[in-house]
Design a binder for these strands. Structure first.
Length: 203
DNA sequence: GCAACGATTTACT
DNA sequence: GTAAATCGTTGCG
């Protein structure tokens, strides 16, 4: 299996993200065909990236070799998962935003509750729940089977003409860069919502 | 040591 | 459409 494209230089992350569409991610008996991803680049280049100010204990894994998972906790409620890309020392990563459950749908539904098929993995945190992973997947490989996650090639590749690009979701900075990619017309793709500034806290 | 905030989702008006 | 939930990471004193 050829995973070398994952290790392409950070400057080519958008291309890497595009390539990842249609690939399948499996964990705990559930297999999901990726229909929506976002690219994140590294230090200094991408203000929207967690790693844009350099390595921290949390973002350490993003600077490691390609093909590992980077999971993080957000809003005190949800987990999201990335696949680390780029060469070692670069902080490139691809955020898995949505997908279609193609195997283990009953297991996914058990984790997600009674929702429509297309909603099982529509959204970053929902996808993580459907896969049944969280903190323990952080830093593990998604290509050699040593971790809970496994990334496998598409049964049928997605044609370039079927791929759309646009601004990333929920990101205040760099909203002018079209680094979100999705399969055109796929029902499992989440609808775009721009970043909404939170109101000041009550006191 | 402490306070602010976030690559979101869900429920409620 | 808008608000609340909820806590680890980060940045600053």
């Amino acid at each position: 299996m050829d995973y070398s494209w994952l290790g392409a230089p950070a400057a080519q992350v958008p291309e890497t993200a595009r390539t990842m569409l249609g690939w399948e991610i499996s964990a705990g008996g559930v297999r999901i065909r990726l229909t929506e991803v976002e690219a994140y680049a590294g230090t200094g280049e991408d203000p929207a990236s967690h790693a844009h100010r350099g390595p921290t204990p949390r973002t350490r894994v993003m600077f490691g070799p390609a093909g590992r998972a980077y999971t993080y906790f957000v809003f005190g409620v949800h987990w999201c998962v990335n696949i680390v890309c780029g060469r070692e020392g670069e902080a490139a990563a691809v955020l898995l935003r949505a997908g279609e459950v193609v195997d283990g749908r009953d297991i996914a539904r058990k984790r997600r509750g009674e929702v429509a098929d297309r909603d099982l993995a529509r959204g970053p945190a929902r996808l993580v729940v459907a896969l049944g992973i969280s903190a323990e997947a952080n830093g593990t490989s998604v290509i050699d089977g040593t971790g809970p996650l496994l990334l496998t090639p598409p049964e049928r590749p997605v044609a370039p003409s079927e791929i759309s690009a646009g601004p990333r979701v929920g990101v205040a900075a760099a909203h002018d860069v079209p680094w979100r990619f999705w399969v055109t017309g796929d029902p499992t793709v989440s609808s775009y919502r721009r970043h909404v500034p939170r109101r000041p806290r009550n006191s």
